[in-house]
């Protein structure tokens, strides 16, 4: 498996775990409060730290297992894979943003707007890494 495919797996797992943690915390906090809680900085900081720790630790491990691959430059096929994955995932992010804006117009909740935009970014970024894996394998 190429180094950058392993990297995409790590980032996918980190984003999925991080996203699951974040939205589980938001949903459980909201059900306890009896309504949608406002976005808070400590939760975002915890999410970011989790993401950085998983990504960094994962990359250190795969780089130690294959240092030569880790240092090799991106080749032409990989460049195409990254461009295609970024292209398709950008549609997903755009769709998420449009839906978020629609929800805001209908409901007028700024908190919900924050969460849906944040979720769109997470989903779009995860989709980008998953598409990279798919394109590596096809």
């Amino acid at each position: 498996m190429p180094f950058r495919e392993k990297s995409a797996w790590i980032m996918s797992v980190a984003l999925l775990f991080g996203g699951a943690f974040y939205f589980f915390a938001v949903l459980s906090g909201s059900s306890a409060a009896g309504g949608l809680i406002s976005p808070n900085i400590p939760l975002i900081v915890i999410y970011t730290v989790c993401l950085v720790v998983i990504a960094t630790a994962g990359h250190i491990v795969i780089a130690m297992l294959a240092p030569k691959d880790a240092n090799a430059p991106v080749d032409e096929r990989e460049q195409q894979i990254f461009i295609r994955a970024g292209h398709y995932s950008s549609y997903l992010i755009g769709l998420g943003i449009v839906l978020s804006l629609g929800l805001y117009i209908v409901g007028g909740s700024g908190d919900l707007l924050f969460y849906t935009v944040f979720a769109s970014l997470m989903i779009g970024q995860t989709a980008e890494y998953l598409l990279q894996i798919l394109f590596y394998r096809t």
């Binding site: 498996m1 190429p2 495919e5 691959d69 090799a72 430059p73 080749d75 032409e76 096929r77 990989e78 590596y136 096809t138």
Partner: peptide
């Protein structure tokens, strides 16, 4: 030639 082994494999298998 500046490619990864996986890209060489993809070329040989006509996937790229």
């Amino acid at each position: 030639i500046g490619l990864t082994r996986q890209t060489v494999i993809a070329i040989e298998q006509n996937r790229y």
